[in-house]
Design a protein around this nucleic acid. Structure first.
Length: 592
DNA sequence: GTTAGGG
DNA sequence: CCCTAAC
């Protein structure tokens, strides 16, 4: 079956047709792009100060600098995302890996970025336990039939996603001291299920990934279903997970090794909410003795070469006070993230002030010099230098569901039961929601986990407690899946697979290159290829989203042209056969 | 269940 | 990404 479109597209390839010949396609794209822009616009920066050595190192040289000035000057916002952890879990501090982004500093302002930590550039860090699962490897020109099964698509090693972030604990829940206004029957009962948002954002495009070096078997709730077709349906329709078995074929797990991103994690709620706000928000810092020694920290702009009267500080973790967020159940994860981001940003910008404790004593006099306060390079006892965020008001921040006045473009995907509490329920469902997440590792240190304890104040017209009437809502639960833009890595894998398999075997492409990517159906891959072909044909100026390397687009065009031709030839042969041997066909029919 | 294509 | 027709 050869449609004229095939011919047309071959024509494109040979530049016989103008690149914009197909108007309907671009028209279709418009809606998608609109969504993208809208989301990006809503993305507020969190950029919590955190562990930026370059900023937190006190470079101004004068020990006469007042504490106040010091704090102000270094209340930087950096392009790091939020590390989420539970307040009560006083876990080892995360290694300060996010040490870049000097160019992304903002002071008290918001910058467009998500929670996710995408650190572009060459990061050398102290993120122990992580390895960059990248690899070089340019791709050869498209040669059909000359593909090795063992060839792994190369990835561009330009960007690295670090899963270590500043420890920002945002605990959303009922306060011990403040009444949280709650609407809805369930809220009044104190729904305290938690959602822990894994801060890796799906909306971000990653070019590389950090994954735990030690691959431990994380428990999978949902066992592998033998029939892959059944499994696929489940995976595509619901947030069903599947365990991955060890696969000897190198290309099979290629994708899974390089990209796993899941919007949220959940974890069992624990009751504890810290009573001491100050303690909870303490900034862990470490003094670095002033010396000419270069510290053990590696990386750009992170060396601690200090001059004499300088004090070098490094904030190793950072916590923000309790927040309360009201958000409808059907709000999107992205909107929740934005809310949290805005909450934290607001909190940092005006709602709170920075406190300082030296060796357990609060330093209230802002006019004291660091030296007078005891913060000096000669003071060896300054390991206990704590910054804190102190609420200027007694009331915790209460956010409403539409902080920015934006409507939700997407809805939170729901589980089969169509109730949010199944999403938030317990650890038990982790695997189901986030299948084969290499980072979903219970054995990981808290340092490398990015958890976000959140208690959703239930306000939606469909309360959490209404779990009984699920059948009627079940159909409604088939919400639109969240948008998950393909990363360059994924495109690479897709191109690689299509080069080998062609454009008509999407199920095979799926199995081959995206077997572990349960959120990518073969239809998705087919669609992506469709857009890739289109993207390759249009001018770079017209392209949106994360730029796909031209090399990949060239391969897309090549492969597309090749397989299109192949398909045409096949069809021609069929036609010829039909013309040549009509009697045979008739004979066959007659015989049957 | 897959594939192809419009929306 | 969704939907649907066609196979």
């Amino acid at each position: 079956m050869v449609s004229h479109k095939c011919v047309e597209q071959v024509g494109y390839k040979d530049s016989l047709l103008p690149p914009n010949a197909r108007a309907p396609r671009s028209a279709r794209r418009r809606s998608i792009e609109k969504t993208v822009v809208s989301e990006d616009d809503n993305m507020f920066a969190i950029d919590l100060l955190a562990t930026v050595a370059g900023h937190l190192s006190f470079e101004s040289g004068s020990s006469l600098m007042s504490v106040d000035k010091l704090i102000e000057d270094h209340r930087v916002v950096t392009q790091n995302s939020v590390k989420m952890e539970f307040p009560e879990e006083d876990t080892p501090l995360m290694p300060p890996v996010a040490l870049l982004s000097q160019d992304n500093s903002y002071q008290g302002s918001l910058s467009p970025c998500g929670f996710s930590s995408v650190i572009n550039g060459k990061v050398e860090d102290e993120a122990e336990g992580f390895s960059y699962s990248g690899g070089g490897g340019g791709s050869d020109a498209f040669q059909v039939g000359n593909f090795s099964e063992d060839v792994k698509p190369g990835i561009d090693g330009e960007a690295v996603v670090l899963d270590a972030r500043p420890n920002v604990v945002v605990s959303l829940g009922s306060s011990s001291r403040t009444e949280v206004p709650s609407i809805g029957n369930c809220a009044s009962h104190g729904v305290r299920d938690d959602v822990n948002l894994f801060s890796r954002d799906d909306d971000e495009n990653f070019s590389g990934y950090i994954r735990p070096r030690v691959t431990k078997n994380s428990p999978r709730t949902v066992p592998r279903i033998g029939d892959r077709r059944i499994r696929k349906i489940l995976a595509s329709r619901h947030w069903k997970g599947s365990s991955r078995h060890a696969d000897t074929k190198p290309w099979r797990n290629y994708y899974s090794q390089h990209q796993k991103s899941y919007p949220i994690k959940k974890r069992k709620y624990f009751d504890h909410i810290s009573d001491s706000m100050t303690d909870d928000y303490r900034l862990r810092t470490k003094m670095h003795r002033g010396s000419r020694k270069v510290s053990s920290m590696k990386g750009h702009g992170t060396s601690f070469v200090s001059s004499d009267s300088h004090v070098k500080l490094r904030i190793k973790s950072f916590r923000v006070p309790e927040l309360f967020i009201e958000i409808p159940e059907d709000a999107t994860v992205g909107s929740l993230k934005r809310m949290v981001m805005e909450a934290v940003s607001t909190l940092l910008s005006d709602g709170h002030r920075v406190g300082l404790m030296v060796q357990g004593k609060k330093v209230r006099d802002d006019n004291k010099t660091l030296h007078q306060t005891g913060i000096s390079q000669d003071n060896t006892q300054l390991d206990s230098l704590d910054f804190s965020l102190e609420p200027s008001s007694e009331l915790p921040q209460l956010l409403t569901s539409h902080p920015s006045g934006h409507a939700y473009e997407e809805v939170l995907p729901v589980c089969e039961t169509a109730t949010l509490d199944n999403v938030l329920g317990s650890d038990h469902h982790d695997a189901a929601l986030f299948p084969s997440d290499p980072l979903d590792n219970n054995n990981m240190t808290e340092d490398s986990k990015a958890m976000f304890p959140v208690v959703l104040t239930e306000l939606s017209p469909r309360p959490l407690c209404r779990t009984s009437k699920k059948s009627e809502q079940q159909q409604q639960a088939a919400q639109r899946r969240i948008r998950r833009p393909f990363s360059v890595t994924e495109v690479e894998a897709l191109v690689q697979a299509v080069e080998k398999l062609g454009t008509g075997r999407w199920r095979d492409v799926k199995v081959r290159a995206f077997e572990d990517a349960d959120h990518r159906t073969y239809v998705d891959l087919k669609d992506k290829w469709k857009t890739l072909v289109h993207t390759a044909k249009i001018s770079p100026q017209q392209r949106r989203g994360e730029p796909v390397p031209q090399e990949l687009l060239d391969r897309v065009l090549n492969a597309h042209g090749y397989w299109t031709q192949q398909q045409m030839q096949l069809q021609q042969n069929v036609d010829k056969q039909q013309q040549e041997t009509p009697p045979q066909i008739e004979d066959t029919l007659l015989l049957n």
